[in-house]
Amino acid sequence: MNKTIRFGAAGVAMFAALGMSSVAHADTATADATAEILDALVLNNDGGSLDFGTMVVSGGGVVTLAADGTLTCADPDIVCSGTTGVAGFSVEGTANKAVTINLPTGSVELRHPSYTPATAAQHAIELDTFTSSENGGSGPEVTLDAAGDATFDVGGTITLDGSEEAGTFDGTFDVSVEYS
């Protein structure tokens, strides 16, 4: 099999042409496994976790951290302080390609270290409405630039009922970059 190594014109990606496959005609009898397009795809979480800072909670309300980093903490019963930060990601891959980003569509539960199902009211916080700083016409999407680079940030909204106990609530959320 013919092996060649070359770098993309934009210097982004590594190509190893392990064989050619025609989109229009692929025949089991003649063709073997071919890997097409050996660009590399890179995902870095260089902006850390989603951080709402510290909130002193004396009543219910919502706190929103927009994907551009803007904190909205307008309810009088919630006092926000400390450093906040969105979760930042960088993608490197095929230049000029649009890539779908999937964020959680439902809500994510954050739990206090003392969480038990019976104490869920004071030991759980719901986080929902995940938002991306980069969007296509119909949802989170990022288009890699001519060098194959892109970044996007993720924000969200938490809903507090006012009974949350002091402490650090832990949780995870999924971020998936979908190559087509």
């Binding site: 995902l43 510290t54 400390g82 995870t172």
Partner: peptide, 11 residues
């Protein structure tokens, strides 16, 4: 106060 540790699982 309440603080939140929200770790992305990314891929």
């Amino acid at each position: 106060g309440v603080s939140i540790q929200l770790i992305p699982i990314y891929g």
